[in-house]
Design a protein around this nucleic acid. Sequence first.
DNA 1: TTGTAGGCGTTATCAG
DNA 2: CTGATAACGCCTACAA
Lengths: 354, 354
Amino acid sequence: MSFTKLELRPERRASRATMSDLARVCGLSKMTVSRALAGRSGVSAVTRKKVRAAAKKLNYELHSAAQNLNTNRSGFIGIATPWEGLIGSNYFAEICRGFSHAMKGTAIDVALFDTLSESFNDGTKLAKLYRQRKVDGLLVVAPHANDSFLKTLGSLHVPLVVVGESLPDPSTCWVSCDNSEGVKSVCKHLVDLGHKRIAFVGGPKELTSAARRRKAFLDFCRQHKLAVPPHYLQMGDYTMLGGRTAALTLLKSPEPPTAIVAANDLMAFGVIESARELDIKIPNDLSVAGFDDLPTAAERCPSLTTVHQPVFEMAEQSARILLQSLENNEIPSGHVKMKVTLVIRDSTGPCPVN
Amino acid sequence: MSFTKLELRPERRASRATMSDLARVCGLSKMTVSRALAGRSGVSAVTRKKVRAAAKKLNYELHSAAQNLNTNRSGFIGIATPWEGLIGSNYFAEICRGFSHAMKGTAIDVALFDTLSESFNDGTKLAKLYRQRKVDGLLVVAPHANDSFLKTLGSLHVPLVVVGESLPDPSTCWVSCDNSEGVKSVCKHLVDLGHKRIAFVGGPKELTSAARRRKAFLDFCRQHKLAVPPHYLQMGDYTMLGGRTAALTLLKSPEPPTAIVAANDLMAFGVIESARELDIKIPNDLSVAGFDDLPTAAERCPSLTTVHQPVFEMAEQSARILLQSLENNEIPSGHVKMKVTLVIRDSTGPCPVN
DNA sequence: TTGTAGGCGTTATCAG
DNA sequence: CTGATAACGCCTACAA
């Protein structure tokens, strides 16, 4: 129930051609014009051509609000995400690309919402957007674990897909990658290289994916009987600086690790920076691995061993699910977990013998 | 004249409460309900309270399409930008933040469009969005110099602000930073440090800002009688890899520069990487400067001397201009050029004497 | 302070 | 294949 706070002087009568104008000019009824322009069947080729020509001549454009009122659709799908931390990221970019790639040819556009904006606090904003018909459906990207709206997602009856990790509300539809498997495959790789002292730089608590990756690391170590002294479990914030700080602590500790796994690539870059500062050679003295496979991971020097996450495909998949729910007027449900792949590059190597 | 290609089964009757329902429940007319909810004057406190309570109880939400049809506004402002290269960037993130900061309290939401998508080719998409009333106004961010739609912007009669450099169409409203002054201040700084052999790594041709920065560099050199051998003018693509490649060429050339100015920070980072590979010390052997002042520019090691560009403020300013045009039903015009500031950090130092 | 009538521009329905 | 009529849900204008 939020209404316009800013009063904009309404420009009530648009000075544009309407369908009635077209109809008059063509000597047809509005209905025939509508059908012709929408490309429906049941209009003679001649009529259609006439209408199209007139539309071009009058510079006619459909008034979407009028159409929306009738069809009860807005033509927008919303992408909601915590702007802080995400909106400038490669992850977000890939989401947009994948999403709009799947939307190509649908006349559906993208609206953008910040889950961290105040209006999201009450957890009803998503439903409101939908009930107001500002959007026909929603993609929620990488929500924070403590976002209050998550718990109520299932009860909103909104066409909605979450990209990220599993959620408190089991009926919610979500698409994720296998974070757990990803971390374990890196660890396995390091163990195969002979490493026994492996440290982990985790991501921010509020991100569900970060929690999952951290848990996977601990599970792996327990399973493989690797000791994890408390300081081998650093907390980062998914930024380079965070990785650098964490690594500094690790590398200066009495028993430094021979390998560091960062919960994302950005932090892995930070780890590499701090190794440089301390004149520790990678991968000779220290192995470093990340998670995400950013475009720069391959370009850096040394190139980064990491886990590739198919973000583009995840977004595409989400879009398809959303589209299908719209077509069938149903609320999507179920999980999709996409495969990740370990990409071995130059930042990891055999455990140094010392 | 593009119409829905994908046919979505319309769900014509929304099963939601309408204003009439509210009116009936309250024993009032639709008008009174409308007034009460919109917060207009001329409604008794009791009535208003009653209406609000009923709205909450019925879970009522305004149908935006109906409202839009009346007011002839969509409630969306579009941000159009080349997704490739921009959407994952810090620049874009700052634009969004600044923009939505200025929009706070206005009930206006953001729609996102890709200027590189095929539909933009014909140069009429912007106008179409507006004429269809999908958006009330547009922010065009960092358009490509060769974008065909730029030439026609002035004639579109669309509330539109461009963030970027000057444009072919002089009547267009645009907001930029003083790219020229920025580059010159870096160069001045380097000259003051004794540098005479300064090279430049330029940005991609298609970006108007890149062209402006490059020109400023050349102007400065001419003015200060600095020699610019052809290879001192490298072409980059605003990525780290581009900077690295360009720097490799420069540093391995017979007469390498003592200072390198990159047209953006990302490329400056690449320059630093390649210096590292060649074991060239910064700033002792080589000074490096960038442009943008990315958050990481301060955190890196060495921290980067660069030009701070007030992107957030530019976006805020654009938003204000756009808002005002909407309020006054007019097309914005004029330029705003924001100040930039040189930020001196550790990557630049005195010219080595050799 | 509240109500009535009518229209915004499009599409569904049903008839011709 | 085409047309008349009636929505869609809200808001403006004017009247009470």
